[in-house]
Nucleic acid binder design. Structure first.
Lengths: 184, 184
DNA sequence: GACTCCTTGTAGCAACTGCTACATGGTATC
DNA sequence: GATACCATGTAGCAGTTGCTACAAGGAGTC
């Protein structure tokens, strides 16, 4: 592997941490370069342009998210929707996963604004979510699997969104209350 | 009322439409001025700075949102949580309200990034949501009203978030599936 | 008519944006 | 040893950002 590729990989690694820590707040080229520990000139030597930097870093983050989701709830034993929501909610509102969900909400908003490369990233990550839910969902034949999967994702994402803009520690109470709202 | 105040009001009105149509995508000072039909120089004569422009416009938008929510579901007859979620979901995913919810998700993301004046706006709008739910929520004594209200808001916001990043028309199916997930 | 305040236009500033031209030292290949 | 490519620094471009200094026309007041 050339120096260029090595540095590229190292940059992606450092920038993944940077994005998870700061969200999309400090993502100008010079700020990204500083976070990656290189000059902005070199960042654009390792990557074609800013969009490619963000795409590569987000791909890394999405991969890690996907890995953790897969680990958290195995896909061997399908769960009834309510139980799946409960367990997913517990996991994603946990201290370690919150920064992923925070970043996810920001990415969705950036995609809504049409900012490259976020629309493409959102489609990809969203497909991953759908697939994850689908593989763990125990649903009677004839039920709307796609609609149900979307609803489950919506509930999980909604928890993250409210969590973001609540100063107090409402997340656990919110998750508990949600659990009570669900039919078994 | 001075010309200045008149123009200020007219600007807020036009910009509210602009934000609802374009989200936070076109919100540089010059773009805002163009949307308001004045020069950027004059926009900063009517308002102290950009943050004040956005704060005023968002206050207008939030007021209208609040009005529509109040109209959509009267607060006279409290509803059980599941029914409240169903009716609120139906309303907010409707064609007219979607642009409000879209903008709301973008505002939350901007607030997460710490961009003035959005953090303050989010706190205010969120408080309005909580109050709206609380005034319509039929819950047994001893239940966690705050937690339940937060959960209900989370579900509604989650629907909006997923709706944003889905090209196809998944919203109705998602809402229907959600309804099935809720206990009565 | 002089004075003052409200309103508006012209012009521009410094900072930042993404990105690039150019030069240069190094390393590998023939 | 000549040539070619890799890696990196310096410097800067054109465009956008939020914002401001300055001047000037107009309207009302004394």
């Amino acid at each position: 592997m050339s120096i260029r590729d090595t540095q590229r990989e190292a940059g992606i690694e450092r920038l993944a941490g940077h994005l998870l820590e700061h969200g999309l707040a400090r993502t100008s080229l010079r700020q990204l370069a500083a976070a990656a520990g290189v000059s902005d000139r070199m960042l654009l030597y390792y990557f074609a342009d800013k969009a490619e930097v963000l795409a590569a870093v987000m791909a890394r983050v999405a991969g890690e998210l996907s890995l953790r989701l897969a680990e958290a709830i195995p896909d061997g034993a399908p769960l009834r929707p309510a139980e799946l929501v409960r367990r997913a909610a517990e996991f994603t509102t946990g201290p370690e996963m919150r920064r992923f969900m925070r970043l996810w909400v920001e990415v969705v908003a950036a995609a809504a604004r049409g900012e490259a490369p976020f629309p493409a990233i959102v489609v990809q990550v969203m497909a991953g979510f759908r697939q994850w839910v689908d593989a763990r969902l125990d649903l009677p034949a004839g039920a709307d699997r796609e609609g149900t999967a979307a609803a489950i994702i919506a509930v999980i994402d909604g928890l993250a969104l409210v969590d973001i803009c609540s100063e107090d520690e409402i997340a656990p109470r919110m998750a508990a209350a949600l659990s009570g709202l669900l039919a078994d």
